[in-house]
Amino acid sequence: MKPKAADKLATGIIVFFALLIVAVLLGMLGFILFRGLSHISWDFLTSEPQTIREGGGIGPQLFNSLYLLILTMIITIPLGLGAGIYMAEYAKPNKLTDAIRLIVEVLSSFPSIVVGLFGLLVVVQQFDFGFSLFSGAIVLTIFNMPLMVRVTEQAFRSVPKEQKEAGLAMGLSKWKIITSILFPVALPIIVTGTILAAGRVFGEAAALLFTAGMTTPHINFSDWNPLHHNSPLNPFRPAETLAVHIWKVNSEGLAPDAAQIAAGASAVLVILVLIFNLLARWLGRALYRKFTSIK
Protein backbone atom coordinates (compact mmCIF):
# COMPACT_ATOMS: atom_id res chain seq x y z
CA MET A 1 0.00 0.00 0.00
CA LYS A 2 2.86 2.40 0.63
CA PRO A 3 3.75 3.21 -2.98
CA LYS A 4 0.05 3.72 -3.66
CA ALA A 5 -0.23 6.22 -0.82
CA ALA A 6 2.88 8.06 -2.00
CA ASP A 7 1.42 8.16 -5.48
CA LYS A 8 -1.80 9.69 -4.23
CA LEU A 9 0.02 12.24 -2.12
CA ALA A 10 2.35 13.25 -4.95
CA THR A 11 -0.53 13.57 -7.39
CA GLY A 12 -2.36 15.71 -4.88
CA ILE A 13 0.62 18.01 -4.47
CA ILE A 14 1.13 18.37 -8.21
CA VAL A 15 -2.53 19.17 -8.79
CA PHE A 16 -2.50 21.63 -5.90
CA PHE A 17 0.48 23.54 -7.26
CA ALA A 18 -0.92 23.57 -10.78
CA LEU A 19 -4.21 24.95 -9.52
CA LEU A 20 -2.31 27.43 -7.33
CA ILE A 21 -0.70 28.87 -10.46
CA VAL A 22 -4.12 29.23 -12.08
CA ALA A 23 -5.40 30.88 -8.91
CA VAL A 24 -2.46 33.29 -8.81
CA LEU A 25 -3.10 34.39 -12.38
CA LEU A 26 -6.83 34.73 -11.87
CA GLY A 27 -6.22 36.61 -8.63
CA MET A 28 -3.85 39.03 -10.31
CA LEU A 29 -6.08 39.57 -13.34
CA GLY A 30 -9.09 39.95 -11.09
CA PHE A 31 -7.29 42.48 -8.93
CA ILE A 32 -6.08 44.53 -11.88
CA LEU A 33 -9.41 44.53 -13.65
CA PHE A 34 -11.46 45.05 -10.47
CA ARG A 35 -9.33 47.90 -9.24
CA GLY A 36 -8.58 49.33 -12.67
CA LEU A 37 -11.77 49.05 -14.71
CA SER A 38 -13.72 51.25 -12.32
CA HIS A 39 -11.22 53.98 -12.93
CA ILE A 40 -11.24 53.69 -16.70
CA SER A 41 -13.37 56.23 -18.48
CA TRP A 42 -13.15 58.07 -21.77
CA ASP A 43 -11.86 61.05 -19.86
CA PHE A 44 -9.13 58.96 -18.17
CA LEU A 45 -8.03 57.52 -21.50
CA THR A 46 -7.80 60.87 -23.25
CA SER A 47 -6.90 63.56 -20.76
CA GLU A 48 -3.46 64.72 -19.70
CA PRO A 49 -1.87 63.48 -16.47
CA GLN A 50 -1.73 65.72 -13.40
CA THR A 51 1.34 65.96 -11.22
CA ILE A 52 -0.15 67.05 -7.92
CA ARG A 53 -3.88 67.30 -8.37
CA GLU A 54 -6.41 64.52 -8.64
CA GLY A 55 -8.07 63.35 -11.83
CA GLY A 56 -5.12 62.97 -14.17
CA GLY A 57 -5.46 60.84 -17.28
CA ILE A 58 -3.18 58.80 -19.46
CA GLY A 59 -4.02 60.20 -22.91
CA PRO A 60 -0.54 61.17 -24.10
CA GLN A 61 1.03 58.03 -22.58
CA LEU A 62 -1.42 55.78 -24.35
CA PHE A 63 -0.76 57.55 -27.63
CA ASN A 64 3.00 57.41 -27.06
CA SER A 65 2.91 53.67 -26.39
CA LEU A 66 0.97 52.94 -29.56
CA TYR A 67 3.02 55.31 -31.70
CA LEU A 68 6.31 53.99 -30.32
CA LEU A 69 5.14 50.45 -31.03
CA ILE A 70 4.41 51.36 -34.64
CA LEU A 71 7.77 53.10 -35.06
CA THR A 72 9.55 50.11 -33.52
CA MET A 73 7.80 47.63 -35.75
CA ILE A 74 8.58 49.72 -38.85
CA ILE A 75 12.27 49.30 -38.03
CA THR A 76 12.17 45.79 -36.55
CA ILE A 77 10.11 43.90 -39.11
CA PRO A 78 12.30 44.45 -42.18
CA LEU A 79 15.50 43.88 -40.20
CA GLY A 80 14.21 40.84 -38.32
CA LEU A 81 12.72 39.27 -41.44
CA GLY A 82 15.94 39.79 -43.37
CA ALA A 83 18.16 38.31 -40.69
CA GLY A 84 15.73 35.43 -40.09
CA ILE A 85 15.60 34.63 -43.80
CA TYR A 86 19.38 34.72 -43.89
CA MET A 87 19.54 32.19 -41.06
CA ALA A 88 16.94 29.89 -42.60
CA GLU A 89 17.85 30.06 -46.28
CA TYR A 90 21.31 31.48 -46.88
CA ALA A 91 23.40 30.49 -43.85
CA LYS A 92 25.64 27.50 -44.50
CA PRO A 93 26.30 25.10 -41.64
CA ASN A 94 29.66 26.52 -40.60
CA LYS A 95 31.44 28.37 -37.79
CA LEU A 96 30.19 31.78 -38.90
CA THR A 97 26.57 30.65 -38.71
CA ASP A 98 27.19 29.16 -35.27
CA ALA A 99 28.63 32.49 -34.19
CA ILE A 100 25.60 34.40 -35.48
CA ARG A 101 23.33 31.99 -33.68
CA LEU A 102 25.26 32.61 -30.46
CA ILE A 103 24.93 36.36 -31.02
CA VAL A 104 21.17 36.08 -31.37
CA GLU A 105 21.02 34.01 -28.21
CA VAL A 106 23.16 36.43 -26.21
CA LEU A 107 21.30 39.43 -27.53
CA SER A 108 17.97 37.90 -26.54
CA SER A 109 19.29 37.22 -23.03
CA PHE A 110 20.63 40.71 -22.40
CA PRO A 111 18.73 42.43 -19.60
CA SER A 112 16.59 45.12 -21.12
CA ILE A 113 18.11 47.71 -18.82
CA VAL A 114 21.56 47.01 -20.28
CA VAL A 115 20.16 47.54 -23.77
CA GLY A 116 18.55 50.73 -22.47
CA LEU A 117 21.86 51.97 -21.10
CA PHE A 118 23.53 51.25 -24.42
CA GLY A 119 20.81 53.31 -26.07
CA LEU A 120 21.39 56.13 -23.62
CA LEU A 121 25.11 56.19 -24.32
CA VAL A 122 25.09 55.70 -28.08
CA VAL A 123 21.75 56.79 -29.52
CA VAL A 124 20.74 59.48 -27.03
CA GLN A 125 24.15 60.99 -26.37
CA GLN A 126 26.71 59.96 -29.02
CA PHE A 127 24.36 60.38 -31.99
CA ASP A 128 22.54 63.15 -30.17
CA PHE A 129 19.00 61.99 -30.78
CA GLY A 130 18.19 62.96 -27.22
CA PHE A 131 15.39 61.44 -25.17
CA SER A 132 13.06 60.72 -28.04
CA LEU A 133 10.61 58.29 -29.57
CA PHE A 134 13.28 57.54 -32.16
CA SER A 135 15.87 56.57 -29.54
CA GLY A 136 13.25 54.44 -27.83
CA ALA A 137 12.35 52.73 -31.09
CA ILE A 138 16.00 51.88 -31.80
CA VAL A 139 16.45 50.34 -28.36
CA LEU A 140 13.21 48.39 -28.60
CA THR A 141 14.34 47.14 -32.01
CA ILE A 142 17.53 45.77 -30.49
CA PHE A 143 15.46 44.25 -27.70
CA ASN A 144 12.95 42.75 -30.10
CA MET A 145 15.07 41.69 -33.04
CA PRO A 146 16.38 38.37 -31.67
CA LEU A 147 12.80 37.24 -31.20
CA MET A 148 11.82 38.30 -34.73
CA VAL A 149 14.86 36.51 -36.15
CA ARG A 150 13.98 33.32 -34.32
CA VAL A 151 10.31 33.47 -35.30
CA THR A 152 11.17 34.10 -38.96
CA GLU A 153 13.77 31.35 -39.08
CA GLN A 154 11.39 28.83 -37.53
CA ALA A 155 8.57 29.87 -39.83
CA PHE A 156 10.71 29.42 -42.93
CA ARG A 157 12.09 26.12 -41.71
CA SER A 158 8.56 24.83 -41.17
CA VAL A 159 7.79 25.18 -44.90
CA PRO A 160 7.96 21.72 -46.55
CA LYS A 161 11.20 21.45 -48.51
CA GLU A 162 9.29 20.15 -51.54
CA GLN A 163 7.97 23.70 -52.00
CA LYS A 164 11.48 25.00 -52.44
CA GLU A 165 12.41 22.13 -54.78
CA ALA A 166 9.41 22.84 -56.96
CA GLY A 167 10.53 26.45 -57.26
CA LEU A 168 14.11 25.51 -58.03
CA ALA A 169 13.05 23.07 -60.71
CA MET A 170 11.13 25.87 -62.39
CA GLY A 171 14.29 27.91 -62.68
CA LEU A 172 13.30 30.57 -60.18
CA SER A 173 15.95 32.56 -58.39
CA LYS A 174 16.39 31.78 -54.72
CA TRP A 175 15.10 35.20 -53.76
CA LYS A 176 12.01 34.78 -55.90
CA ILE A 177 11.36 31.42 -54.25
CA ILE A 178 11.75 33.01 -50.82
CA THR A 179 9.45 35.93 -51.49
CA SER A 180 6.80 34.33 -53.68
CA ILE A 181 6.62 30.72 -52.57
CA LEU A 182 8.04 30.28 -49.08
CA PHE A 183 6.99 33.59 -47.56
CA PRO A 184 3.22 33.13 -48.04
CA VAL A 185 3.45 29.70 -46.42
CA ALA A 186 5.54 31.03 -43.53
CA LEU A 187 3.40 34.12 -43.04
CA PRO A 188 0.87 32.81 -40.49
CA ILE A 189 3.63 31.82 -38.07
CA ILE A 190 5.48 35.08 -38.68
CA VAL A 191 2.35 37.15 -38.05
CA THR A 192 1.54 35.33 -34.82
CA GLY A 193 5.11 35.67 -33.59
CA THR A 194 5.32 39.33 -34.55
CA ILE A 195 2.16 40.29 -32.72
CA LEU A 196 3.24 38.42 -29.60
CA ALA A 197 6.59 40.21 -29.82
CA ALA A 198 4.71 43.48 -30.20
CA GLY A 199 2.87 42.76 -26.95
CA ARG A 200 6.22 42.36 -25.23
CA VAL A 201 7.46 45.64 -26.67
CA PHE A 202 4.28 47.32 -25.54
CA GLY A 203 4.88 46.46 -21.89
CA GLU A 204 8.60 47.17 -21.84
CA ALA A 205 9.68 50.00 -19.58
CA ALA A 206 13.22 49.47 -18.26
CA ALA A 207 14.82 49.99 -21.67
CA LEU A 208 12.82 53.17 -22.21
CA LEU A 209 13.55 55.04 -18.99
CA PHE A 210 16.81 56.36 -20.38
CA THR A 211 15.95 56.51 -24.06
CA ALA A 212 12.39 57.64 -24.75
CA GLY A 213 12.47 59.55 -21.50
CA MET A 214 10.18 59.92 -18.51
CA THR A 215 8.40 63.07 -19.58
CA THR A 216 6.12 64.14 -22.37
CA PRO A 217 6.19 67.75 -23.51
CA HIS A 218 2.90 69.42 -24.25
CA ILE A 219 1.53 67.85 -27.40
CA ASN A 220 -0.84 69.61 -29.70
CA PHE A 221 -3.21 66.89 -30.85
CA SER A 222 -4.56 69.03 -33.65
CA ASP A 223 -1.22 69.29 -35.43
CA TRP A 224 -0.39 66.07 -37.26
CA ASN A 225 2.62 67.28 -39.21
CA PRO A 226 5.48 65.02 -38.05
CA LEU A 227 7.98 67.81 -38.71
CA HIS A 228 6.37 70.21 -36.25
CA HIS A 229 7.83 70.46 -32.81
CA ASN A 230 4.63 69.91 -30.85
CA SER A 231 3.06 67.40 -33.18
CA PRO A 232 2.18 64.03 -31.65
CA LEU A 233 3.85 62.42 -34.66
CA ASN A 234 7.19 64.16 -34.20
CA PRO A 235 9.54 61.19 -33.66
CA PHE A 236 12.25 63.33 -32.09
CA ARG A 237 10.31 64.44 -29.03
CA PRO A 238 10.57 62.79 -25.61
CA ALA A 239 7.74 60.41 -24.86
CA GLU A 240 6.75 58.71 -21.64
CA THR A 241 4.95 55.47 -22.43
CA LEU A 242 2.16 53.82 -20.49
CA ALA A 243 4.47 51.26 -18.88
CA VAL A 244 6.97 53.93 -17.87
CA HIS A 245 4.10 56.02 -16.52
CA ILE A 246 2.95 53.16 -14.28
CA TRP A 247 6.44 52.85 -12.89
CA LYS A 248 6.76 56.59 -12.36
CA VAL A 249 3.39 56.96 -10.69
CA ASN A 250 4.23 54.11 -8.34
CA SER A 251 7.68 55.29 -7.39
CA GLU A 252 7.34 59.04 -7.33
CA GLY A 253 3.67 59.81 -7.90
CA LEU A 254 2.50 62.78 -5.88
CA ALA A 255 -1.11 62.92 -6.99
CA PRO A 256 -3.53 61.77 -4.29
CA ASP A 257 -5.12 59.27 -6.66
CA ALA A 258 -1.77 57.78 -7.77
CA ALA A 259 -2.80 54.24 -6.78
CA GLN A 260 -6.00 54.44 -8.83
CA ILE A 261 -4.15 55.88 -11.80
CA ALA A 262 -1.61 53.07 -11.61
CA ALA A 263 -4.42 50.52 -11.38
CA GLY A 264 -6.29 52.05 -14.31
CA ALA A 265 -3.17 52.27 -16.42
CA SER A 266 -2.19 48.69 -15.52
CA ALA A 267 -5.66 47.49 -16.49
CA VAL A 268 -5.36 49.25 -19.85
CA LEU A 269 -1.92 47.74 -20.39
CA VAL A 270 -3.04 44.23 -19.46
CA ILE A 271 -6.17 44.47 -21.60
CA LEU A 272 -4.10 45.61 -24.57
CA VAL A 273 -1.64 42.74 -24.05
CA LEU A 274 -4.62 40.35 -23.88
CA ILE A 275 -5.93 41.79 -27.13
CA PHE A 276 -2.52 41.30 -28.71
CA ASN A 277 -2.53 37.66 -27.62
CA LEU A 278 -5.99 36.97 -28.97
CA LEU A 279 -5.31 38.90 -32.16
CA ALA A 280 -2.11 36.95 -32.76
CA ARG A 281 -3.90 33.64 -32.41
CA TRP A 282 -6.91 34.62 -34.47
CA LEU A 283 -4.97 36.26 -37.27
CA GLY A 284 -2.49 33.40 -37.46
CA ARG A 285 -5.29 30.89 -37.80
CA ALA A 286 -7.23 33.01 -40.28
CA LEU A 287 -4.18 33.47 -42.50
CA TYR A 288 -3.33 29.80 -42.32
CA ARG A 289 -6.83 28.94 -43.44
CA LYS A 290 -6.72 31.49 -46.21
CA PHE A 291 -3.47 30.17 -47.63
CA THR A 292 -4.22 26.49 -47.37
CA SER A 293 -7.99 26.79 -47.77
CA ILE A 294 -8.43 23.90 -45.38
CA LYS A 295 -11.92 24.37 -44.11
Partner: peptide
Protein backbone atom coordinates in the same frame (compact mmCIF):
# COMPACT_ATOMS: atom_id res chain seq x y z
CA UNK B 1 -2.61 25.72 -18.02
CA UNK B 2 -1.12 26.65 -21.39
CA UNK B 3 -3.10 29.90 -21.72
CA UNK B 4 -2.43 30.66 -18.06
CA UNK B 5 1.32 30.29 -18.57
CA UNK B 6 1.22 32.36 -21.76
CA UNK B 7 -0.68 35.13 -20.02
CA UNK B 8 1.76 35.11 -17.10
CA UNK B 9 4.55 35.50 -19.65
CA UNK B 10 2.71 38.36 -21.34
CA UNK B 11 2.00 40.54 -18.30
CA UNK B 12 4.43 43.49 -18.38
CA UNK B 13 6.97 43.71 -15.59
CA UNK B 14 5.75 47.08 -14.32
CA UNK B 15 2.34 45.49 -13.78
CA UNK B 16 4.00 42.75 -11.72
CA UNK B 17 5.70 45.49 -9.74
CA UNK B 18 2.44 47.30 -9.21
CA UNK B 19 0.63 44.15 -8.09
CA UNK B 20 3.53 43.29 -5.80
CA UNK B 21 3.37 46.73 -4.30
CA UNK B 22 -0.41 46.68 -3.86
Amino acid sequence: LQPVIELLAGIPSVVYGFIGLS
